[in-house]
């Protein structure tokens, strides 16, 4: 009896987590796949037709936005990395006793809703907003100078909104680096730069890795920034999915696009993890 219970224990322990995954992950994905393979419209109803061709059709129609999303997400992620690393480094090593204050400041924007924050940027950057209007009146910028409805505005919005998700994991990784290890590097004839490149940077890579994932994925699929800060030429795939679903009520197209976005991101993550696995990079640094 006891043997049976012991053999069952791992499965019983996995049950709550398994149920959670089933309800909140497997069921929605299966539903999404099934909806994608239906045909019909809101009036006449939808029927399961296993229309595989839909993936090709939506991709042909929206590949521009697909590509644009990945490019915007990628650029925003790179900018975030460049901005966040020094911030995290400074907080971890130089902020001294005020560390928690700076961390709080980084989290502060989260106390206001994501959409509201983005709308505020819309007001600030508007052509007749409180920044551009006075500058134009003073003749400091040309009349046809815009920020809103440009690529810059959308990428800027993505960077602004997701930056904390880059700073925090890098900060945590840097914070865990034993200062004695850095001193050991200096003791062994490494100057500041060598100590950083050979020791601090490789040890912080798990944080960089996590930060990139935590920002690239939401930035690529985000509809809000393009919607509020972008114009017609800046639509991202998130906006298309949103429109197809809620405006056109073309549920199969929206589901097919969502499914493809997910697949692209998963493949991307897999390739990224393989190519930039922290082990590989650390080995390179030890050389």
């Amino acid at each position: 009896m006891r043997r049976v219970r012991a053999a069952l224990a791992p499965y019983l322990l996995a049950l709550p987590g398994g149920l959670w995954l089933a309800v909140f992950l497997v069921v929605p994905i299966a539903t999404m796949a099934s909806v994608a393979l239906q045909t019909g419209n809101l009036m006449d109803g939808f029927s399961q037709t296993f229309n595989i061709a839909i993936f090709g059709e939506v991709f042909a129609q929206y590949h521009t936005q697909f590509l644009r999303s990945i490019v915007y997400g990628g650029i925003a992620t790179v900018i975030m990395l460049v901005v966040a690393y020094p911030m995290a480094y400074w907080i971890a090593f130089k902020a001294g006793r005020r560390k928690s204050v700076y961390l709080f400041l980084i989290l502060l924007p989260f106390f206001v809703s994501f959409v509201l924050r983005t709308i505020s940027w819309g007001f600030l950057l508007a052509d007749d907003g409180i920044v551009l209007a006075p500058l134009r009146d003073l003749g400091l910028i040309p009349d046809d100078f815009h920020i809103l409805a440009t690529t810059t505005a959308v990428i800027g919005g993505l960077v602004y909104n997701f930056l904390p998700f880059m700073v925090l994991p890098i900060y945590v990784a840097l914070e865990r680096v034993d200062p004695r290890v850095i001193e050991a590097a200096q003791d062994l004839y490494a100057g500041r730069f060598q100590a950083f490149v050979r020791v601090v940077l490789p040890l912080s890579l798990p944080g960089v890795f996590a930060g990139v994932l935590m920002t690239f994925i939401p930035a690529t699929s985000d509809p809000v920034n393009a919607q509020i800060l972008g114009g017609t030429s800046n639509t991202m795939i998130g906006n298309i999915i949103y429109t197809e679903y809620l405006v056109n009520n073309d549920y199969p197209a929206a589901s097919a696009l969502s499914f493809m976005l997910m697949a692209v991101l998963l493949i991307g993550i897999f390739v990224y993890a393989r190519a930039l696995g922290t082990e590989n990079v650390m080995e390179a640094a030890a050389r």
């Binding site: 034993d178 004695r180 290890v181 050991a184 020791v199 040890l203 030890a286």
Partner: peptide
């Protein structure tokens, strides 16, 4: 060092 401070990577 007291704690060795070896490079973990």
């Amino acid at each position: 060092f007291q704690s060795y401070a070896l490079f973990p990577h």
